[in-house]
């Protein structure tokens, strides 16, 4: 009789531990993958400006420009022609160059020549929306 009562109360011993473990593992996985976009950006010394306040739409493409004037996309240094090929791919994906937004992350000491080269090609390709990344003074 007693044994039967003990068996009929299985909810009291339902082990939640593995489920909680898996849920936390999933949370960690999603947080890691959401951070990859940030981590894959090259560590460049951005211009120290406050920037525009408010929410900005996420860019279609992020191009880092290093102090040496090299172009880096997704942490991979690319030649100028390869950069243009990537921009063209984005234009094809959006099917309208005016919808493509490019974020340039330049080293603050690099001369504007490296940016002007991109600007000339963007104008030729019809890409008109771009922004320069800045770092808040005293931040990061």
């Amino acid at each position: 009789m007693l044994r039967a009562r003990r068996r009929s109360n299985p909810l009291g011993v339902f082990d939640m531990t593995p489920m909680i473990d898996i849920v936390f593992q999933l949370i960690i996985f999603f947080m890691f993958t959401s951070q990859f976009g940030q981590i894959s950006r090259t560590n460049v010394d951005l211009p120290e400006e406050k920037g525009e306040s408010g929410e900005q739409a996420p860019p279609a493409l992020v191009i880092d420009v290093t102090l040496e004037g090299a172009y880096v996309i997704d942490a991979k240094p690319l030649s100028f022609d390869r950069v243009l090929a990537v921009v063209q791919r984005e234009i094809d994906r959006y099917q309208d160059p005016s919808l493509v937004t490019v974020l340039i992350r330049p080293d603050r000491r690099v001369t504007a020549g490296a940016i002007n080269r991109l600007a000339d090609e963007f104008a030729r390709l019809g890409v008109r929306r771009w922004a320069i990344a800045t770092r808040s003074e005293g931040g990061g």
Binding site: Q25, Q38, E49, I132
Partner: peptide
């Protein structure tokens, strides 16, 4: 697991510096 999460947040906090942007049409 909660402690692992805390460690994760502390590590990633140093990865991402606050960035903003200045836009201009080309």
């Amino acid at each position: 697991v909660v402690f692992l999460l805390l460690i994760f947040f502390m590590v990633t906090a140093s990865f991402s510096a606050d960035e903003d942007q200045l836009s201009a049409a080309i």
